[in-house]
Design a binder for these strands. Structure first.
Lengths: 234, 234
DNA sequence: CGGTAAATTGACTGCTCTCAATTTACGTGG
DNA sequence: CCACGTAAATTGAGAGCAGTCAATTTACCG
């Protein structure tokens, strides 16, 4: 199996200004005073990732967490045949790599890959652990991050694994819209990704997606960007 | 919709001896000193529940958490049509009602119902919150409980929502075996429950379950108790 | 014993899978 | 710039699993 290099097409955007982060209220360190944060801030880096970039890989030793500010990430695991299963989609506010903060294992449980352009902050694992050791009174912040994953997992089951394929794909694109910058258009995932997400064949998916395009449910706005056309707009 | 009374067929078993609880190591308060626990202990009650008992109901105001020591619980939500969807199965070590500990909403997000006989401890929500406020240094204990739910959610997707129905049902019974007291026999859920768990019709499920019984894959050991007969045993 | 709900079974339909051929897209090297 | 190779997407044809509708049997309870 050829392993692409991690974090392809990544651009460094400097030390982030966490005190004014747009997602800060709903996200990591929402409750923290600036003084509690200061030691952490100096070690956090902000990056832009292109679609397809891999944030972390299942089984690799963990060094960092990634706090997602913009974009969508597929969070996937691999079965015995090496086939990917997407456990959930993660959007702004999600933190990737939480499993590595409890100290039992030191490697990532899943692979996280950008499905769109990303804006994410890389947090060194040691800095994160130190912060939590020094300020356990802010533990709720951590719990909220776990809750975020749990809600995404529940959403997967309810929206991507239930009912007819047609409906599951519509739900998928609705979620992608929600996670996009403008709330409408989104980078269309590959057939293989959709397959791993909704649990169907690429062939069946191709057929239905072609239908959507023919029927005008799915409208192409750009190179690989599409948007859903709701019934009200017709 | 007729609402059965909550906690039907519940028996009080007194104040539990948490310091010697069999699941304590893997469970709530695993790290806590006895002295930190003492204030909590006096308000915790241990109960036995019969299959079908409801621990908490979606939307009801939250008063307690339930720490599961023995048995299996279905954790379900209801869609627009009032149809149940089982999000996950919870076994020993799980704590039910975590969503209510963050303070935003005060009601249960899902309904938790016993699929087998249960041994569970009821923890007053206020006592739990006070403990965490006074001893935030033990926050990892809480995080582990959330992780437990997340792993159960991921298991649902991988085992109950993937592949052919036959396989999903086999996985279901394997999980039920794992959660049972003896590790083998289990209380067989109703067709409706299996339907809400694996995402199929009761009719389709009935057919396959009948097959399992005819082919000897599923062996009846008692009234409503069955066990899986693995290929090695044949 | 009767009434309701659940499970079982049959017949039929249809969605999705499988297999396969073709077309399109894309990166590489001449 | 084009030729080529590979991978992905598209489309067709056929089979099979699961859904739907419906009738019957069984289970359970007052």
């Amino acid at each position: 199996m050829s392993r692409k290099s991690i974090c392809t097409n990544r651009k460094w955007r400097g030390r982030p200004d966490c005190t004014h982060c747009v997602v800060r209220k709903s996200v990591l360190f929402a409750d923290l005073d600036v003084k509690d944060l200061s030691s952490l801030l100096s070690s956090v880096d902000n990056f832009q990732y292109e679609p397809g970039s891999i944030l972390c890989r299942q089984g690799d030793p963990a060094t960092s967490l990634y706090s997602l500010r913009k974009g969508v990430v597929k969070f996937e695991t691999f079965d015995d045949n090496g086939e990917a299963e997407i456990l959930r989609l993660l959007g702004p506010g999600a933190v990737i790599g939480l499993e590595t903060t409890l100290g039992e294992g030191r490697s990532y449980h899943c692979t996280a890959t950008a499905l769109s352009g990303l804006d994410a902050c890389r947090i060194p694992l040691v800095a994160f652990k130190r912060l939590m050791k020094e300020h356990p009174e802010h533990y709720k912040v951590i719990v909220i991050l776990w809750k975020h994953h749990l809600e995404a997992a529940d959403e997967s089951l309810l929206k991507f694994r239930r009912g007819e394929l047609r409906e599951r794909l519509l739900n998928t694109m609705t979620v992608l819209s929600r996670f996009s910058d403008d709330g409408h258009s989104f980078h269309l995932p590959s057939g293989k990704d959709l397959s791993a997400l909704v649990g169907a064949t690429t062939v069946a998916i191709s057929r239905i997606m072609a239908d959507f395009k023919r029927q005008g449910v799915l409208h192409q706005v750009d190179d690989n960007r599409y948007c859903l056309v709701t019934k009200e707009e017709l």
